[in-house]
Simulated scan of single mutants.
Amino acid sequence: MRILLFCENRYAIDILNPLQEYVTDNNLPHEVMWYIHKPKISTFEYASKVRWTNSIQEAYDFSPEAVFVPGNIVPYYLPGVKIQVFHGYAAEKKDHWIIRRYFDTYFTQGPYFTSHFKALSEEYGDFEVVETGWPKQDWIKRNLHTYDAERQRLLDSTGRKRIILYAPTFSPKLTSLPLEGMKERLGELAERNDALVVMKFHPLTRKEWADEYRAWAESKDNVMFVNQGENITKYQLMSDVLISDTSSTVYEFLLLSRPVITVRTIAKDIYWENTATPDGLEEAYRRAMNDPEAIARRQWIVDNYDPYLDGHVCERMLNAAADYIRRHGVPNKRRLNLWRKYTSVKTFGFVKKK
């Protein structure tokens, strides 16, 4: 099977790399090519190890049979079964449920998502839904304790007992970054609970906000600012508690069965602790750490959002892709309206067809 791993945004690389690793580690006879969208991704850390291109023409000439996409859009003119694998678990964001007609099949993370997308599949009638789990969870399972030593070095060097990760979203309408008192309450929470606050911001965070928090961190001995280009999953695995707002990292952290606190989240169904203002962080922290009901709510997320923490997600995905091709053949085109075609071409350009 010729597989194209399609990356429009930087975060897609970490989501799709477990598929590459599974193929490589098991010596599978698949051909794998990466498409790296140069306007949004300046560097590709696996460039010397894998076959890749930032030319959409080369991606087309590769003639993929399966295209894995953790994003909302993929060029309609690429051949192959186009597979939506999602860029996270943020179900409260409206665009998570929009059907844009680019995809032949959706590989869902767990029962909650499967039920919703199967209903949409019946409504639209032109895509399938397969519950596989999320590929990044395979990487997490393999690396669950990879950073234990680095975590301990951080704690020893700062004299702290635990790590609180602050990972807000970048969206100006949703982020907690500009809220009055946010920095001060974070610092107080760290001091009262003998913790180190590690701040990891999204690469698209406004520069002025990132610069403000970076300067603040440099003045504190219990706050650390992490380069925005680093992999957040590493710091999730190193941390004891997450503070965020409306971000898919909330669900990724909950799937580790660890406490989460949000500030002014827009989520309708909240399975963690939420506070309307930074002033409520201390009380929310206490509940998240000690309340049995809070622990039970976190378990509901594991059971319904993504129970596939067995390390076999990539295997299921590749088998499901092969099964789709076996039943339907390799699709050559999708039924799209002119607007979707225009959006696709505007984003990725034209190709010369064979």
Results as ranks from 00 to 15, higher is better:
Y22S: 01
L28I: 01
L28F: 07
L28D: 08
P29E: 09
H30S: 04
E31V: 00
V32A: 01
W34H: 06
Y35G: 04
I36M: 10
K38Q: 12
P39D: 11
K40F: 13
K40W: 12
K40A: 13
K40R: 14
S42H: 12
T43N: 11
E45A: 10
E45R: 15
E45P: 12
E45Y: 14
Y46T: 01
A47K: 15
A47T: 02
K49W: 02
V50N: 10
R51Q: 15
R51L: 08
T53M: 07
N54M: 05
S55R: 06
I56C: 04
Q57P: 13
D61Q: 10
F62W: 07
F62I: 04
S63W: 07
F68V: 04
P70A: 03
G71S: 14
G71D: 14
N72W: 14
V74F: 03
V74H: 03
V74E: 03
V74Y: 03
P75C: 09
P75D: 10
Y77D: 08
P79E: 08
G80I: 03
G80V: 07
G80A: 03
K82L: 05
I83R: 03
F86E: 09
H87Q: 11
G88D: 14
G88Y: 08
A91F: 14
K93R: 15
K94R: 11
K94C: 04
D95M: 09
W97L: 09
I98P: 05
I98N: 13
I98Y: 14
R100E: 07
Y102H: 13
F103T: 07
T105V: 15
Y106V: 08
F107C: 00
F107D: 02
F107V: 02
G110S: 11
G110F: 06
P111W: 07
P111T: 09
T114I: 00
S115R: 11
F117C: 02
L120K: 13
L120Y: 11
L120D: 09
L120G: 04
L120W: 02
E122K: 09
